[in-house]
Design a protein around this nucleic acid. Structure first.
Length: 393
DNA sequence: AAGACGGGGGT
DNA sequence: ACCCCAGTCTT
């Protein structure tokens, strides 16, 4: 028993010594502004530090205060998040900024109930904000912390289980040295990121290697225990690259995705799920799906003529693997800006048309050139396709 | 408890 | 090719 107590005190003490000497100079560590801490923690969810840094700089420059973020057009927030992924983080962050304006006078709250009530702020981020920004002795348990502690204390429970996270939170809370919650929690994550890494950890340079149970037992590589995620299911999709004619010469047709679900409210090229039997191999030959895609465009007033395959693209989400075959289409009879049928669900205005939501999209369409992309948020795979197209044409 | 939800980097 | 990442929300 005494051994465990000593081992804990040793861990906390040596970890802080190491952190004071080795901590990285990160943008959000240069201020104690709770808003900066909050933004960085949301961006860092499931995302590496190196990826986040440029996004953090742009975001803070564009939205310097909580009030700026709360009042901004959602489109601007999404555009600032473009390429970072998990876009509900961006929309939730803006919603939470509005909550902070309304409920807390524009100041990030410093009590657990109020912080965790903010949209997009779960157990980890609550602890991170309270400890890092306000130095409160709350645990902030992320993947790094679970890995470090499961090794040091030889915890063999599956870290994917909620029960395990709660147990580790209680353990982590008991390790926080008096008055050093901010540094200690960051030190724990820093160790996981720099030394106690998932693959080939640097045990020989680890500040707490002497009492690391996994190292002493020779099972560092077996921990943490983590159940495997299911592989993403494949999907085959036809994508329409519709080239405008007449007043839309040089432009391409895009649509906006639905308010909820995958890539919510982002812009994309129109596409349609194809039914491909596994026996057909790569067979992207689903004629009915192609007809559906053409039919859907006809419904928003765009008659198109296929002009052949343009390129293939792939994109992997956590749960879906997209195989995209992009086809060029000519726009043969542009009705979209010339005809307005009232009472049919269509609304026309400028270069936009709306058809009340089919599966997956908002029914909102636009013709754009490459310059227009600067203000519209696209998922990575469509950014790649569109940029390639505009560069070559 | 399980699935949805992006994208990049490391091995 | 597979694993992982400074997780949260919905069902």
């Amino acid at each position: 028993m005494q051994e465990i107590i000593d081992s804990k005190a040793y861990f906390s003490r040596e970890l802080l010594v190491w952190y004071d000497r080795s901590k990285r100079d990160l943008p959000w560590r240069r201020h104690r502004d709770p808003y900066y801490i909050w933004v960085s923690e949301i961006m860092l969810q499931q995302t590496r530090v190196d990826t986040v840094i440029p996004y953090f700089h742009r975001f803070i420059e564009r939205f310097p205060s909580i009030a700026d973020l709360a009042e901004a057009p959602e489109e601007d927030v999404l555009k600032c998040w473009e390429g970072l992924g998990y876009y509900s983080r961006a929309r939730n962050l803006q919603t939470a900024a509005q909550q902070v304006m309304e409920r807390h006078g524009g100041v990030v709250p410093n009590d657990k109930e109020a912080v965790s009530a903010l949209k997009g702020v779960g157990p980890y981020t609550t602890g991170a904000i309270l400890s890092i920004a306000y130095n409160q002795p709350e645990p902030a348990v992320d993947g790094n912390v679970m890995r470090v502690l499961s090794r040091y204390f030889l915890i063999e429970e599956d870290i994917m289980k909620a029960r395990t996270r709660i147990m580790i939170e209680e353990l982590a809370a008991g390790l926080i040295p008096q008055g050093r919650a901010s540094d200690f929690n960051q030190a724990l994550m820093e160790l996981g990121a720099l030394v106690c890494t998932p693959k080939s950890p640097s045990c020989l340079t680890c500040p707490v290697m002497e009492h690391c149970a996994a190292r002493l037992e020779g099972v560092v590589d077996e921990l943490p225990v983590k159940s495997k995620a299911k592989p993403p299911r494949p999907e085959y999709r036809f994508v329409a690259l519709v080239e405008g004619s007449g007043r839309n010469e040089g432009r391409v047709l895009i649509r906006r995705r639905a308010d909820k679900g995958l890539l919510a409210r982002m812009w994309e090229l129109p596409h349609m799920l194809a039914n491909v039997s596994p026996l057909e191999g790569a067979g992207l030959l689903d004629a009915p799906a192609m007809d559906q895609l053409v039919g859907e465009l006809a419904e928003v007033g765009i008659d198109v003529k296929p002009e052949g395959a343009y390129m293939d693209a792939e994109h992997t989400f956590s749960h879906i693997h997209w195989n995209l075959r992009v086809f060029r289409f000519g726009d043969v009879a542009e009705r979209i800006n010339n005809v307005a049928e009232s009472g049919t669900g269509y609304e026309f205005g400028g270069d936009e048309a709306t058809l009340g939501g089919r599966e997956g999209d908002s029914g909102e369409y636009r013709w754009i050139n490459q310059q227009d992309m600067a203000s519209l948020a696209f998922p990575k795979v469509f950014l790649t396709i569109l940029n390639r197209y505009f560069e070559l044409n």
